[in-house]
């Protein structure tokens, strides 16, 4: 990877500048292009391009020096190919754990943070079974369905990817420090946000596009109306990925969002085979066996 400091400077920009790379060729060329070029192509971020946050970049480089921490840039061969296909792929990924896992066939499992025990049980058993079938389970590490999915995958083959909506030097939620530790051992935690980034609402939504973007499909387990988990599913639809939904009782408000999606045409799923049958079309899974 050339010029990691320029890639890192990209990560600290006020918005995703990945789309500019096509024009400028590389982050270095972008930063060195000068105000004339900037005014034409990216007038909104001139201030930042003039004065990139080199201090923060220095911190990033220190974080990257620790064992197990990696940086994967958009032009790198380890960059997950499925994620590269999406509309606005993150230019850099901060990674803790096994970088190769990012290229494995993945299924995202998402759902509400305030899941019922039945919902968490479903997440755990589906994740464990699918993990044993060779799929990597990708999710977002927060409470409820997401945490349960990671635990399920750890009980299976252990291959699981957590996409954090915060800098990887922090642990969130605090109760998940043990889970985080376990994921780093056999799986991977990634973030598009540089170390030191605090938890912010806006990051949760943009994190969702990475969860769905990494995966062949997204499985939704328990999402009430307006659940944040529905963001991930909407992204999956936009990205042309499969959407799987577990139904529930019409008297259960926790599955309102699930039912809405089935009405819109998402696939109803009762068991693991329903998912595997659908994903058989993707040769990635066969390659695993």
């Amino acid at each position: 990877m050339k010029d990691p400091e320029y890639w890192l400077a990209l990560a600290h920009a006020p918005r995703n500048l990945g789309s500019l790379l096509n024009h400028f060729g590389s982050p270095r060329h972008l930063f060195e292009a000068g105000p004339l070029e900037w005014r034409v192509h990216c007038a909104d971020v001139i201030k930042y391009l003039q004065k990139p946050n080199w201090y923060a970049v220095e911190n990033d480089i220190q974080w990257l020096a620790q064992t197990g921490n990696h940086l994967i840039t958009l032009d790198h061969s380890d960059y997950p190919p499925f994620l590269r296909e999406i509309y606005d792929p993150p230019p850099v990924l901060f990674v803790r754990g096994d970088t190769l896992l990012l290229k494995s066939p993945q299924l995202a499992i998402v759902g509400t943070r305030s899941a019922s025990s039945e919902g968490e049980w479903t997440a755990r058993t589906f994740a464990e079974n699918l993990s044993n079938q060779g799929l990597t389970i990708t999710s977002g590490l927060v409470f409820g369905i997401e945490g349960a999915s990671h635990w399920g995958a750890l009980a299976g083959q252990g291959k699981t990817i957590a996409v954090a909506g915060w800098g990887l030097d922090q642990i969130y939620p605090a109760e998940h420090s043990e889970l985080t530790q376990k994921i780093v051992e056999t799986g991977t935690i990634i973030s598009e946000l540089p170390p030191g980034t605090q938890i912010k609402r806006m990051h949760f939504r943009s994190r969702s596009r990475i969860i769905s973007g990494l995966s062949l499909g997204t499985l939704l387990i328990e999402a009430p109306e307006y659940s944040g988990a529905l963001d991930t599913v909407r992204f999956a639809i936009e990205q042309g990925r499969e959407v799987f939904v577990i139904p529930g009782s019409i008297h259960n408000p926790l599955v309102k969002g699930c039912h809405q999606l089935i009405k819109e045409g998402a696939k109803l799923v009762e068991n693991v085979n329903d998912i595997l049958e659908e994903l058989q079309n993707y040769h990635y899974i066969e390659a695993q066996h």
Binding site: E118, P247, K256
Partner: peptide, 26 residues
């Protein structure tokens, strides 16, 4: 009408939904 995947009484319902029937909540 859908139901819990653990409820054997709605296995037929889910089969119909997979075949394209209209899901009804209300």
């Amino acid at each position: 009408i859908p139901g819990s995947i653990y409820n054997p009484l709605v296995k037929g319902n889910h089969k119909l939904l997979k075949e394209g029937a209209t899901l009804i909540e209300t």
